[in-house]
Design a protein around this nucleic acid. Structure first.
Length: 737
RNA sequence: GCUAGCGUAGCUCAAUGGCAGAGCACUGGUUUUGUAAACCAGUGGUUGUGGGUUCAAGUCCCACCGCUAGCUCCA
């Protein structure tokens, strides 16, 4: 017998080999009917799963009121969807089909690609399946039997998955639903009839096992609820959220624009957006001065050699605007050098570099057809010789070299002597040169150099998105050069600065991510010991500040670990805003020093940090956060004066002038429109205050105040109203009161 | 970059392969207005770009550019 402890504390005995469903029936018929799944200790299991051989366990029947049931429903809905697709598109291969935050998906590969037009048919087929209310039956097989079973079903991805990941499991579970059998861990609904409300949402590509070198499948996104009412409410919520989209509001409120003529991913800040940005910059600049930062200015380009030294140019080669070389042959030779230096590559890397060379439009004769070996390098080599000959360039060391690495080195030594520039992808190398411009003593540290530095990164086309992912952006950047002893205090102060900034703007819905190195990856530079020290230091800081955070391997920068502040946009995508990063690597690469108290040279540690992250992304998120209704201190237009008719335009203009003289961003609407129309327009522009002026106000020398959210607030003389505005602005108030 | 979809006036959207349209905005006029849209008239287009099929292309085909969703990437 197993002793079950129910949520209310009561206990029940259940024989070994019995199932949750039987217990539910004993408790009550209605409960058994409403049951979706059960929770045994902390595990969610099928109603028909035998109890494990335990002496006692916490036990709970889950109904559609438990949030955990929703996940079960969605997982089962994924099976139902896959079954429907299999019926309509015979020969479809199935991959993974999990429940996700607001629904579920299934990755599939059908002989004919699915399109959104197919959704109604699929949904209809799903309804047919649901109407039959067939049970989900669980059974187990050994890995070898399981492999045979899925191979017999002609499910190649499932076979591959067993071979790659599951073959060492003692036993694998399957679920059968009518003719449909799927390898699956479960748990599932008792029967398909419980899947009351579902909707297919979108279709997109997704790589098999999230690996871009593997085949790309079709991912069908959908969602499911226990009732149509819940589904409708969810869909409505999504629709409402989409109205906050900064791309939409940015256009409506004329905050920014993107022109195809200027280029994709390049933000043009319109006057109103620029005004808000200016206020934010002033705000943070004042804060930095208080905190001992030194503002600096540096150019938008730098010598290539600088970025070779920092590592940015070679490391992010394919995510940068092409280098600007003065010599006409240098761009081509640079690409050839890059390829030669890369050596012989595996298939995945060869594909990537091939794509990169295609994108750079470097057509090396015979390269594509050449075997994946020394042969490809030979093509590059012959191409280099051709360039040297036709362009009249002599590189003696190259011509003399016999081995490919030697040739790559010879080319590089020619290239580094060429005049070449890079649009700066990072500000740190420039700030480092300012640090190096004078000898530094331990007494000078920390040196804190701050700049609104504009950087350029050639993001993949598919990544560009409004203001949140762009190709040119301005970081509210700073680099701190500190002694090892100062690291902790300075890191802490910067994390606190980020928290302060977020709080000022009411951005409370963020998460903290501790980005750590993936020890199995080769993409990180620097000594393991430095990494460990840095990571331990960061961990200590987030812990001591009492922040809830998630430590994530593989999320570090290539030169050091970081603490990121991540928020969600209106459609639920996550974006990194503020960041604080620790770096032992660049000080080494640039041989930074300060003189210690012992009169000997020491190496400083660098901290990279940006509380907003990028002005563009921050602005995008802020637009959505405020739904375009910026608080008074940020509103591009704070007050609009609305004369009731043009008889009162003169009085309106005097009110407007008084406001402007008091430093308020005010305008007036003196068109021959009714006041209702003027109000409507000001409301749509989300202007915080409207001042209606007519006969009464002119006579009494007052203004009738209307707030965009709170409506008519009655008449008041101008001076106290201005005083109120001044106070709210000074306090950076987020609400009217 | 990849998969799927999309691109018509400043904005939101119409238009069986058969004369490119509406509303809003804008301009001019009338109205003199009291808390979310007064009325009349007018301007506005090489249908993203370039090719092709066709008697005829916004519509069909190809390439490129851009946008959207997701995947991969993200200093």
């Amino acid at each position: 017998m197993i002793k079950l402890i129910l949520p209310d504390g009561s206990t029940r005995e259940a024989p070994v080999g019995s199932r949750p469903r039987e217990v539910a029936e004993l408790i009550g018929k209605r409960l058994a009917q409403a049951a979706i799944a059960a929770k045994v200790n902390d595990e969610i299991v099928d109603l028909d799963r035998e109890f494990p051989p335990l002496a006692e366990a916490r036990f709970q029947i889950l109904t559609d009121r438990d949030p955990a049931s929703l996940e079960v429903l969605r997982h089962s809905s994924a099976h139902i969807m896959a079954r429907a697709v299999m019926r309509l598109f015979p020969g479809t291969q199935l991959a993974f089909g999990p429940a996700i935050e607001n629904g579920f998906y299934y990755d599939i590969q059908s002989p004919t690609p699915l399109r959104e037009e197919d959704f109604p048919r699929i949904e209809e087929e799903m309804r047919q399946i649901v109407a039959k209310a067939e049970p989900f039956e669980r059974f187990e097989r050994s890995p070898a039997e399981a492999r045979e079973l899925v191979a017999g079903l002609k499910q190649d991805y499932k076979v591959e998955h067993i071979d790659e990941g599951l073959k060492h499991h003692p036993s694998l579970s399957f679920y059968r639903q009518g003719e449909f059998i799927d390898l699956c861990r479960g748990p599932h609904l008792p029967h398909a009839g419980k899947a009351a409300a579902f909707k297919l949402l979108s279709i997109a590509g997704a790589y098999w096992k999230n690996d871009s070198s593997r085949p790309q499948l079709q991912r069908l996104y959908a969602t499911a609820f226990f009732s149509q009412k819940d589904l409708d409410a969810y869909l409505k919520l999504v629709e409402e959220a989409k109205k906050r989209d900064h791309r939409l509001l940015g256009k409506q409120l004329r905050l920014f624009t993107i022109s195809q003529q200027v280029g994709a991913g390049l933000i043009l800040w319109m006057p109103k957006g620029a005004l808000i940005r200016g206020i934010l910059e002033t705000y943070i600049r004042e804060e930095l001065v208080k905190r001992g930062y030194s503002p600096v200015y540096t150019p938008h380009v730098g010598r290539l050699e600088l970025y070779r030294t920092s590592g940015h140019f070679p490391y992010y080669r394919d995510a940068q605007f092409p280098p600007l070389y003065c010599h006409p042959a240098a761009s081509a030779l640079d690409l050839c050098q890059y390829r030669l230096a890369s050596g012989i590559l595996d298939a995945a890397k060869e594909r990537d570099i091939g794509l990169f060379l295609d994108q750079a439009q470097l057509a090396i004769p015979g390269y594509r057809e050449a075997a994946q070996s020394e042969e490809k390098l030979q093509c590059v080599h012959l191409f280099v010789l051709e360039i040297l000959r036709t362009m009249g360039v002599t590189i003696a060391a190259y011509q003399e070299a016999t081995a490919m690495p030697e040739r790559a080195a010879a080319l590089l030594s020619w290239l580094v002597n060429q005049e070449g520039y890079l649009l700066k992808p990072m500000n740190c190398p420039h700030h480092i040169q300012i640090y190096k411009a004078e000898p530094r003593s331990y007494r000078d540290l920390p040196v804190r150099l701050a700049e609104f530095g504009t950087v350029y990164r050639y993001e993949q086309t598919g990544e560009l998105s409004g203001m949140t992912r762009v190709r040119g952006f301005t970081q509210d950047d700073a680099h701190l050069f500190v002694t090892p002893e100062q690291v902790e205090e300075e890191m802490r102060a910067n994390v606190e600065l980020v928290l302060f900034v977020l709080k000022t703007l009411g951005l409370n819905d963020f998460r903290v991510r501790l980005g750590l190195r993936d020890p199995n990856s080769d993409k990180y530079v620097g000594a393991a010991e430095d990494w460990n020290n840095a990571q331990t230091a960061l961990l200590g800081i987030v812990k001591s500040l009492g922040l809830t955070f998630s430590a994530e391997e593989g999320e570090a920068a290539f030169y050091g670990p970081k603490i990121d502040f991540v928020v969600k946009d209106c459609i639920g995508r996550e974006w990194q805003l503020g960041t604080v990063q620790l770096d032992y690597n660049l000080p080494k690469r640039f041989e930074l020093e300060y003189t210690g108290a012992d009169n000997k040279p020491h190496r400083p540690v660098m901290i990279h940090r940006a509380p907003f992250g990028s002005m563009e992304r921050f602005m995008g998120i802020l637009i959505e956060h405020f739904n375009g209704a910026f608080p008074l201190w940020l509103a591009p237009e704070q007050v609009r004066v609305l004369p009731v008719s043009d008889k009162f335009n003169d009085y309106g203009k005097s009110v407007e002038k008084t406001l402007r003289d008091a430093g308020i961003r005010a305008s007036g609407d003196y068109r021959a429109d009714k006041v209702g129309a003027k109000i409507r327009e000001a409301q749509l522009e989300k202007i915080p205050f409207m001042l209606v002026v007519g006969e009464k106000e002119q006579t009494a020398q007052t203004v009738a105040i209307r707030h965009r959210a709170d409506g008519d607030l009655g008449a008041q003389p101008l001076p106290p109203f201005i005083e109120h505005l001044h106070q709210a602005i000074a306090d950076r108030r987020l609400t009217r009161q």
